[in-house]
Amino acid sequence: MSEVTLTIDGQSVTVPAGTTIWEAAAAAGIDIPVLCHDPRLEPVGVCRVCAVDIGERTLPAACVRRVEPGMVVHTDTAEITAHRRVLTELLLADQSATSRRETTTGDDALYALARKLEVGTIPWPDGSENTPRGHDTSSPVIAVDHQACILCDRCVRACDDIQHNDVITRTGKGHATRIAFDLDQPMGQSSCVSCGECVAVCPTGALTHRALPERPAHLEEVAS
């Protein structure tokens, strides 16, 4: 396999041809933030927070753009940081007041990114103020908060391409776009097998583990 040498943040990096900029940077120990990407998934480049400067007219998504010989990549300029902050603020604008992910598995990637970028006041209106996207609590084990969903498609790809259960999809248009189960069934009535892969890959509070259901009273018997 042929190799490609490029420069990332002043560092010379040699990787196999076909590698993405994000992978090449990761191999060199350079952390480019991502929300929609997970190394186990085919990249789709929809969240754009991994945008980098390669001297082109626009900022390409590092998760999808392949490396090229002699490419000069900047991952951390003032322009890029401003770009990422705006995107993050836009995503946060219609988030719920609290992320369930912060209180369950504690790994909300959107909130972590906001903290890293020192986001303060969000200068954008909450687009869902009058049209909340709603919740789905029909599954005993997985809580769905459409308000926290950033449509990154990670859950769709995890369900289709990792577990091959083919349950999750998208439905709706524009602001009303959201994830759906089968032909828009409540999750608990869909063909979902509760493997939890969607929760594992979700970067926000959109898909989280529910607290274990209450034990029915007749099972609450204490030994001896």
């Binding site: 186990r40 369950t104 598995t105 084990v141 990792i162 577990q163 097998v193 509760s194 493997c195 939890g196 892969e197 594992a200 583990h209 274990l212 609450e220 018997e221 204490v222 030994a223």
Partner: peptide, 30 residues
């Protein structure tokens, strides 16, 4: 509180419903 798949040779971080959610039996009051 939760189970998270590790990058094991047989599962590559995947789990199923039993592994993901079936861990509380050990803490059952019986």
């Amino acid at each position: 509180q939760y189970a998270e798949g590790r990058d094991g040779a047989s599962n590559a971080r995947r789990l199923c419903v039993k592994g993901r959610y079936g861990f509380d039996y050990a803490a059952h009051p019986q």
